[in-house]
Amino acid sequence: MSRIAERFAALQSAKRKALIPFITAGDPQPSLTVPLMHAMVEAGADILELGVPFSDPMAEGPVIQAACERALVHHVSLLQVIAMVQAFRKRDKDTPVVLMGYLNPVEIMGYRAFAQQASAAGVDGLITVDLPPEEAHDLVAELKEVGIDPVFLVAPTSHDERIKSICELDSGFVYYVSLKGVTGAHTLDINAVKQKLSEIRKHAHTPIGVGFGIKDATTAAQVADIADAVVVGSAVVKCVAENIGHDDKITDEIQNLLRSMRAAMDKQTASARVA
């Protein structure tokens, strides 16, 4: 069983939902990334999503675009991101780490070289924003060979047939993009999300995470009520952007945000149980 599957199984028996925060690796500087990863776990994160900086992040809103630019000032490469995961694994053998980024850096490294090195470093999953299932066959084969879960996105525009083929290829969890737009956009429409999740559940053989538009404890709790995992990106990265030069404050604010989300999510799932 993969580390991601194990983590979801444990959460399910504890009747809790997964909190998955995102940071861009190397933002604001490479030395803070591994400490931030540990700090997020301490504040209640179940799985970590680590963004691989890219020069042309087409699916990102302004907050994560700026994070990529800050990281690229330090020339943070995919190899360095893999090394960061390896460093994180020295102290944390259990928390799954999913890399999220764009195809070109993986393409340049080579699918096999990436799969082998990432797996050896302790990477558990890969989300490639601009790689739809139609073009993913070769990469998925290499990832599955080494036990890395390829995680695919499902969008509000994905119809039933596509959802089915995405779920067939996917492992680890399915990532539902809750709105049409870029990361950090408007607030999500919880009823629309709920309806789409019931369509996805017909095909999904893995847990379903929801991301895009989750800004605070309230929205996190709403999503926890209907999904298996809550992915928080821009709200976390904002804590970095607003405190550049003050590493302690970045850490504190991210931890405060995650603790408030964790508490609201757990309260929500507990009350749902009682009801």
Binding site: M58, A59, L103, V129, D130, L131, P132, E134, E135, F152, L153, V154, A155, P156, T157, S158, H159, R162, I166, V177, K180, G181
Partner: peptide, 20 residues
């Protein structure tokens, strides 16, 4: 039929744009 010129071309976009 899938937009490939040999190894080039194709469709590499976010899932939201695949249907459109």
């Amino acid at each position: 039929s899938r937009g490939h010129f040999g190894p080039y071309g194709g469709r590499f976009v976010a899932e939201t744009l695949m249907e459109p």
